[in-house]
Every structure is written in structure tokens, then in C-alpha cells.
């Protein structure tokens, strides 16, 4: 990873990856939406509401993936002082918050016709809501300090403490008796959903993932430019003063 600690090298690599990720994301969204909306069956119990799954589940996976990757970045920042780790965490946070919000709202839109309620305070739903607040808390915290070094350190500690929530989300459906159904894709013994539904789900998940890669690169470039602007302003201020 330290090969990519040099921002100049990262920027060169990012320039190569960005168009591919963007192109791949568009292609996967087209294929995934085609299968999800036109070419997959309704559920025998849930009818067409099952199509909400193709948004809800990828958004949920991405909300957890993004947070986990930010927590790993926070560890790299605190232990090895990897200069890009904090940049990554700051860049990824709004995207992760967006995915979590999407997961919560589509879950409500699915819950109302199928469970008869928009919201229940069950373990899965509550722990995902906490995840959303962790994202918001992180973004607020790193913007609350004037000194970027202290801001990033505080943010990294918050991310590591909040990481305890990730396994709680994952296993909440097994540990507690929840209204939310247990896992049906990543489980021992393989997926229990039909390939006609699994394919659109996986394509949409990959589309979300490649979208994330493209947007996080854009945001990291913006963060790096921001840091350069601060340095230039500081240099100018000290030259004049």
C-alpha cells in the first residue's frame, strides 16, 4: 500500500482507473436495471415489491463496505500515518452516508406494503440507523477543527470505535428476533434465492461498487486539491505577514 502513499503516483493511477470505473458502472447499471425491472420474476409472496431489493440490498452492502473500508483507512492513518488514508476516509464518507440513507428509505418503502409498517425499532433497522449517524458524526467531526491534523486524528478514532457496529449490523438478524429477514445471499450453504433474482442483484451490486470507485476518486482528487490550496494560502499569508 505504501507504493501508493505518494499522492502524485495515486493521481496518475486514479486518472487511469476513473474512466474505466465510470464506463463499467454505466454498463452494469444498464444490464442490472434491465434484468431487475424487465427480465426477472416477481416474488410468489411479495409480488413486484421484490424489485425494491435490487436497490435496497446493494445499498445496504455498500453502506457496510464503505464504512469498513473507512475504518481500515483510519487504522492505516493512525498506525502508519499513511497520507492518503485520511483523504480516502473524508472522500468516502458522504457516499457511504448516501448509500445508508438509500438503504433506510427503500427499506421503509418495502416494509410498508410487506410488513405493514414504515419503521420498527428492531435490531437490524436500529443498527443501520446508528451507522447513518456514525457517517454524519464523522463528517461533522472532521469539519469541526481548524487544524486538519487534529481533525483527521479525531475522525479516525471515531471510525475505529464505530467499527464495532458493523458486525452488529451483519449478525443482528441472527442474534435477535427481528422483523427483518436473515441473510439469503452470503450465508453458509450458498444463496437461497433463485438465479433469476441473484443475477440482477449481483449486477446492481457491482454497478454500485464501480459507481463508488469512480465518485470516490473524484472526491479524493478534490480533497487533495483542497489540501494544496490550504498550503498555498498559508505560504502566501506567511510571505505577506
Amino acid at each position: 500500500m505504501h507504493r501508493f502513499a505518494n499522492p502524485a503516483r495515486f493521481l496518475r493511477l486514479a486518472t487511469i482507473i476513473l474512466p474505466w470505473a465510470a464506463l463499467l458502472s454505466v454498463g452494469l447499471f444498464i444490464a442490472g436495471l434491465w434484468l431487475a425491472l424487465f427480465n426477472s420474476p416477481g416474488d410468489y409472496q411479495q409480488g413486484d415489491t421484490v424489485r425494491i431489493m435490487y436497490i435496497h440490498v446493494p445499498a445496504a452492502w455498500m453502506s457496510m463496505f464503505t464504512y469498513s473500508s473507512m475504518a481500515v483507512a483510519a487504522a492505516c492513518a493512525l498506525v502508519w500515518r499513511h497520507p492518503l488514508a485520511e483523504v480516502y476516509a473524508r472522500a468516502a464518507a458522504p457516499i457511504g452516508a448516501g448509500f445508508t440513507l438509500l438503504c433506510l428509505v427503500t427499506g421503509s418503502l418495502w416494509g410498508e406494503p410487506m410488513w405493514g409498517t414504515w419503521w420498527v425499532w428492531d435490531a437490524r433497522l436500529t443498527s443501520v440507523l446508528i451507522l447513518f449517524f456514525l457517517y454524519l458524526g464523522f463528517m461533522a467531526l472532521v469539519n469541526a477543527f481548524d487544524d486538519p491534523v487534529r481533525a483527521n486524528r479525531a475522525g479516525s478514532i471515531l471510525l475505529l470505535v464505530g467499527a464495532v457496529n458493523v458486525p452488529i449490523i451483519k449478525f443482528s438478524v441472527d442474534w435477535w428476533n427481528t422483523l427483518h429477514q436473515p441473510a439469503s445471499v452470503f450465508r453458509m450453504g450458498g444463496p437461497t434465492i433463485h438465479p433469476d433474482m441473484l443475477w440482477p442483484l449481483l449486477l446492481m451490486a457491482l454497478a454500485f461498487q464501480t459507481y463508488f470507485v469512480a465518485v470516490v476518486i473524484l472526491r479524493m482528487r478534490a480533497e487533495l486539491a483542497d489540501a494544496k490550496i490550504q498550503t498555498l494560502r498559508m505560504a502566501r499569508a506567511s510571505a505577506q505577514g
Partner: peptide, 12 residues
């Protein structure tokens, strides 16, 4: 959408 249009389309 089998009568679930508001839920499905608002999600998408």
C-alpha cells in the same frame, strides 16, 4: 408494478 407502483418507483 402489480399495484405497488408508488413503492417500487419511488425506490428507483
Amino acid at each position: 408494478m402489480g399495484g405497488y407502483a408508488p413503492y417500487v418507483w419511488s425506490s428507483y
